[in-house]
Structure formats: C-alpha cells, structure tokens
Design a protein around this nucleic acid. Structure first.
Length: 479
DNA sequence: TTTTGAGTTGTTCGA
DNA sequence: GTCGAACAACTCAAA
C-alpha cells in the first residue's frame, strides 16, 4: 500500500476552506486525520479552562463533520513531536500536512518538526488558513513590519483580496485501518465538581455549523448598526465570532467574503460592514505583531514600560476577578465573563483599564485571568489587547487615557440593562445611581433594597485618587 | 535624508 | 448643559 499522509488538525477545526486538508486529500494517499492535545509544548499558553470546554465541543463537531466525509478523527494526547513520530511509524506515513500557527511556541514547534521530519524524508507542510493575510506579506515600503494599525490595514486593503473560500475535499481516500485513538471523554476537558459550564450549551454552539449560523445571524441584523451598536454591551450587536475564529471553525476568508457580499448587495450597509471588517483587521494586526515581535506575549512592546512600577495587591485582584470592585460596570463585566466565558469588547476595555490603571496591576496578571476564563482566549489578541489598554503596546492608548468606569457605564449602558442583568443586587436602583450607587441617598438605597458594603461593596478605590496615582506612575517612566 | 502629518475606542476642566 | 482645548511627546510611515 502507498505511504500514508497525516492531516494534523490544530486551530483549524473545520473541513471548509482548509487548504492543507484539500492538498492532503489531493495526493490521493491514504489519509489519517488527527488532533493532538498537547499541554506540554505551549507551556503556560496551553488552553485555559473555558477554552477546554469549547475545544471539547468543537472536537465533537469536527468528528461529526469528518464522519460525514466518510472518515474519522484520531485523538491523541501528548507532546506533538512525540505523538506525530509515533503516528508516522504506526501508519507508515511519509507526509504530514497542517495549518500554520503564529504563537512563538508554535513557530518553534513547526521549525523543530520541519527539521526532524525532513531528515527522515517525511514531507512536513504548513499551509495558511487562519488569517486573511500572511505575516511577511503585509510590510511597509521599507520592508518593515507595521506598528500602527491604520496604515497596516490600508495596506491590507490595497493588496489582493483574500481568496474565496474553498469547499471541503471530496473523495478522501481514508486510511482503511488507522491507528487507535483515545476517547474525548477521557481527556477531561469538561469541568466537573463543580460543572460551572452547565448553563453554557444554550449560549454557545462550538463547531462549524454554529459558526456559520452565528455569522448569518449577525449579517442578517446587527451589522446594520455595527459602528454604534457594538459599543453597547446590552444590545448584542457584536458578531460573537471570536471563539469560532480562534479555533478555526470558520475561516476569516469566509467571514470576509460573506460580509463583502452583503455590502455589495446593499451599498447602504457598506460603511457598517467595513467597520466590522476592520475589527477582523485588528485580529490580523495582533497576529502579525506577535509573529514579528514574539516578545509581546510576555514583555512590553514599548521598552520604557519595563520600568513601570506595578503594584501587586492580591485582595484588589481577587475583588476584580470576582466582580466585587464596587464599580457596577466593572463588576458586571467580570461576572459576565465568569458566567458565560465571554465579555463584551467595550467592557473588556473598561475592566482592563481598571485593573492596570486604577489598581496598577500588571497587564499580564489580567491577561492570565482572561486566558483561563475566556472561551475565545487567543494569545495574540489577548496580549495585544491588554498591552493596548495598559499603554505599553503598539499603537497603544495614550497613558493619560484612563477610563472613568462611571462615565463609561452611563454612556454605554444608559438604561442599565447590562448592569442589572449581571449585578442583580443593584437591579432596583434607579438609572441615575445605577453606575454610582455610593452617591445614592440612604432612602434611595433602602427602597432598592441595597445595603452598601453589605449587599454590594463600596468602591475598593476612589476614582479620582486612583487616576492621579496612575498618572504619577506613568509619569515616573517618562524619558 | 528630511519633512510632514497622523495616530481605535477618553477624561477633565473651564469658559 | 455644552463645547473646545489640554492632556505630552514620540514614533511611525510615506512623500
């Protein structure tokens, strides 16, 4: 029998628009499809708890899809190089295909595999597929990486349009007797004792079908008011595609072309669609930055921030994590995160600003918490987002831009729907005091059934004083 | 090489 | 209540 080809699924859990799988199928060699749960190679960047829940369901979905194509998904756990080595031996493979990833650890892994496999005449091929534009393809005139979003995205839009998505392969020559795999349930990706994700199934549909439905729903409605609507966390005007994109259940090219198609059919929507696409642009920008400047996942992009006088206040950190800071919009966001594995983007900025500026806590502390609790945890987006808020990132927010949690709440949750949903102990407060309960007169609090400091905490820091302390801290690292 | 214009998402203060 | 300016200077990207 001919040599086997292995398709190694990674963060590309789909069969649509997957160049590596198409190429693997086109070889006509007996194909084995596998997914490896590798918690060793990524180190602390291994999937967090919420991501593992998503991954479990996404793999179930991929198993279904592959069965639909007449095949199956082989599951193995362990260090990727070891597992691949073993599989190559077990099924006499002479080729491994996969999609590229851009995390520093993943790049190093791909290099290592490339050299060890090449020395054994095994064809290791990586394909693009997770981004619209490959890093290295979008550069300044001086052939340098972009460090500012606007010119970066302009350049992306000037270059040739991302290719149209491709259909799944037909007639895959599946290996008749693939090696035995492990059972997904044995991996323990789902939480137990307690099962904190028991309420999640109605919220999320991991997998390609769920991703396509989410996109269709978004384009059929919310995108029409995207520029404004996306700022209001209670309106549900964002696409919520982040986790689907992270796991590669839908390709960004498919999203791009669906959105462009809508704008083409209805020119009134163009401006809103373009705004949405520019958010995909930020996803691109973060990945390109991480590729060109791998240190951004750990170190400040702007060197002077090495000397930033971060504090480490465990009590305050715990209050932030639990949604007990006394600032309703912050607490609502942190509780949405805890209860759903997700937080609206506007609120992510508010809570991140609060942690880094009001509490002077290192952005990496916040990034770690997000990594563990977000279903869409993504190293590039998470690192760049936190650095942007902290002021240490590329094209970052100026240091004197310190979100006022009261103003943000009043501006973007004026009717208080978001806060009332996630901080129900304040639900009876009138709008006027909802975002600043400490200013409510005693009788108003009493009527709303709120005993401040008892039912709901008093603010753990005072805004004005915290703001001044943050400005002083930032002032201390200025050249 | 030098110059020029510009840079996601805000807040505060004072007129 | 509304509006414009200050907040700070620096680096980037392109002409």
């Amino acid at each position: 029998m001919a040599n086997t080809i292995i398709y190694w699924f990674r963060q590309d859990l789909r069969v649509q628009d997957l160049p590596g799988l198409l190429a693997a199928a086109a070889t006509g060699k007996p194909l084995v499809a596998c997914f490896i749960l590798d918690d060793e190679t990524p180190g602390e960047h291994r999937p967090g708890a919420a991501s593992r829940w998503w991954l479990h369901h996404s793999l179930l979905s991929l198993q279904d899809e592959l069965r639909g194509l007449g095949g199956e998904l082989l599951l193995r756990r362990g260090s990727a190089p070891q597992v691949l080595e073993e599989l190559v031996g077990a099924c006499d493979a002479d080729a491994i295909h996969c999609s590229r990833q851009y995390e520093p650890w993943a790049g190093a892994l791909e290099q290592q595999l490339h050299s060890t496999l090449a020395s054994r005449q095994i064809d290791f091929k990586r394909y693009p597929g997770s981004l619209l534009f490959e890093p290295g393809q979008v550069m300044t005139q001086a052939e340098a990486p972009f460090k500012i979003f606007t010119p970066f995205w302009r350049q992306c839009l000037r270059s040739s349009e991302p290719r149209r998505p491709q259909p799944p392969p037909v007639d895959i020559n599946w290996h008749p007797t693939p090696p035995r795999g492990e059972s997904l349930l044995d991996w323990g990706l789902l939480p137990r004792d307690p099962d904190w994700a028991s309420q999640w199934p109605p919220l999320w549909s991991p997998g390609s079908t769920g991703a396509a439905e989410r996109l269709a729903t978004f384009l059929a409605g919310p995108v029409a008011d995207y520029s404004e609507g996306r700022n209001h966390p209670a309106r549900g005007a964002t696409s919520r595609l982040s986790a689907h994109l992270h796991f590669g259940e839908i390709s960004p090219r498919a999203v791009w072309h669906a959105a462009r198609g809508l704008a083409h059919a209805d020119p009134d929507r163009k401006e809103q669609v373009d705004k949405f696409l520019s958010e995909l642009g930020w996803r691109e920008f973060s990945h390109h930055l991480m590729y060109h400047f791998p240190h951004i996942v750990e170190q400040p992009f702007k060197e002077p921030f090495q000397a930033f006088p971060w504090l480490g206040n465990e009590t305050a950190l715990r209050a932030w994590q639990r949604g007990l800071t006394g600032y309703p919009i912050v607490d609502a966001g942190m509780r949405e995160l805890w209860h759903t594995g997700y937080m609206h983007n506007r609120v992510r900025m508010v809570v991140a600003s609060f942690l880094t500026k009001h509490l002077l806590t290192h952005w990496r502390t916040g990034a770690r918490w997000f990594h563990d609790t977000l279903v869409d945890a993504d190293l590039a987006n998470n690192s760049c987002g936190w650095q942007w808020v902290a002021g240490s990132g590329a094209d970052a927010s100026p240091y004197f831009r310190i979100f006022n949690p009261v103003t943000q709440g009043e501006k973007f949750d004026a009717q208080g729907d978001y806060v009332r949903r996630w901080v129900p102990e304040l639900a009876e407060l009138p709008d006027r005091y909802l975002h600043k309960p400490w200013e409510a007169p005693a009788d108003v609090l009493a009527r709303a059934g709120v005993a401040l400091g008892d039912d709901y905490p008093a603010p753990i820091v005072e805004h004005k004083a915290a703001r001044e302390a943050a400005l002083a801290a930032y002032g201390s690292i200025k050249g």
